[in-house]
Write a protein that binds this DNA or RNA. Structure first.
Lengths: 221, 221
DNA sequence: GCCAACCTACCAAACAGTAGGTAAGTAAGC
DNA sequence: GCTTACTTACCTACTGTTTGGTAGGTTGGC
């Protein structure tokens, strides 16, 4: 039934991937993810591949939105698999799993998720946007969420809303390329060490004899 | 020399603001900030104002880029002033000042800074992009940075890189609208409480008799 | 000889930007 | 109080370019 899978071989009628189509998706991913759906034209993508814009319609007959959609789908599935494996492989502590997640993202040509959700979605058809939002949630949000839920179940961490934690950590991962300006900028590994350390142990100096207790919020109740 | 300033009165040749131009900037800010430079057309902005696209060239003769530039400038200056005042008014603790910052952002129609830096900048002329990046740094990054620097100087917090902290907190503020999907989503105030609490005191459960010490990173050190 | 993977050559719509006009208001001179 | 000169804040009508998309070839490998 199944011969060795190396050559073209489109025996199954199931949707396969075709090396040429994959190359198009690769280029589209780099460009779309860096500058967004509206900013990148089909001609930009074609130029990157040394082909003509009309040729893209061979692989994606329904046009730009289909290309963006399939590229996003591939992106999210890849991240879902990568994150799940990174977390499963890591030691069962919040710290180790967050490192694993961060290292996965570091190895990926990550991208502004904020940009995507924010700028690209309104330009797409509502159904497409909805579907992609759900995939983004399942692929990126859910794995992080479970790290914090499991950590709390283990008694390792106190019970803070896992959605808030997942969202915050994702936002930090997403925006880690911000601090471009600062002159003495630490390496990414150092930044990660500090971020995860603060996340787990807090910013407060505990070597001091402890300041006045209970001044957590400003005035008025 | 200076009469009462109510009527038109363009005695000075200094650049003034003209109520009509301000209305254009208001509309442009809402649209540009929500969907980005390339996704919003001049016709979109004009439609929002019930006027024709060509009329925008009366206020911004150099076109779309000038409009975006002046709008961004106004946005950053307003945030710079707002943040400085919020911090100066708050009690001199990291906690109180972070709350003040968060409340300032909450009162603003905030926007994806990530989107802006990521998607819009490449579409602008390099000089414009450079100028805006510097303004963003001065307006948003610097005030947050000083909170952490002062906190450490007071001995309130331990010495973590203030740039990393400022970047992370900004990223969280920026991406706080992410968790749209989750069914039982807490209010913004609750989210803030939890985020700042974790930031200061850490996520680790300290009521426990303390787990095995010194397992901060996974294997192979 | 057939099919995957391109190509050339178009099209209509939408885009930023230009040119010139116009209605309403203001301020000054007499 | 009426004309003259100028300004503000738009308008209509247009241009050249770029966009996503369509139709119908062409080519090389199995």
């Amino acid at each position: 039934m199944a011969s060795n899978a190396t050559e073209p071989m489109n025996a199954n009628d199931q949707d396969e991937i075709s090396e040429a189509k994959e190359r198009v998706l690769d280029a589209a991913e780099i460009l779309f993810m860096r500058q967004g759906y509206t900013a990148i034209t089909l001609r930009d993508i074609a130029r990157e591949l040394n082909m003509k814009q009309a040729s893209l319609y061979y692989h994606f007959p329904k046009g730009k939105e289909q290309l963006y959609m399939e590229m996003s789908q591939r992106f999210f599935l890849r991240n879902r698999r990568g994150l799940d494996e990174a977390i499963a492989t890591a030691a069962p502590t919040v710290s180790a799993q967050l490192y694993a997640v961060a290292e996965w993202f570091a190895g990926q040509p990550l991208v502004s998720l904020a940009s995507m959700m924010h700028t690209d979605m309104p330009a797409l058809q509502p159904e497409t946007a909805d579907h992609l939002s759900r995939m983004a949630y399942d692929a990126l949000f859910v794995p992080l969420r479970t790290i914090f839920i499991d950590g709390a179940a283990r008694g390792e961490t106190r019970p803070v809303n896992p959605d808030v934690l997942a969202g915050s950590f994702l936002a930090i991962m997403d925006g880690i390329q911000f601090g471009r300006k600062s002159p003495h900028r630490p390496s990414r590994a150092q930044m990660l060490d500090e971020i995860i350390s603060v996340l787990l142990d807090g910013l407060r100096d505990r070597t001091q004899p402890t300041g006045p207790p209970g001044i957590s919020r400003s005035p008025s109740a």
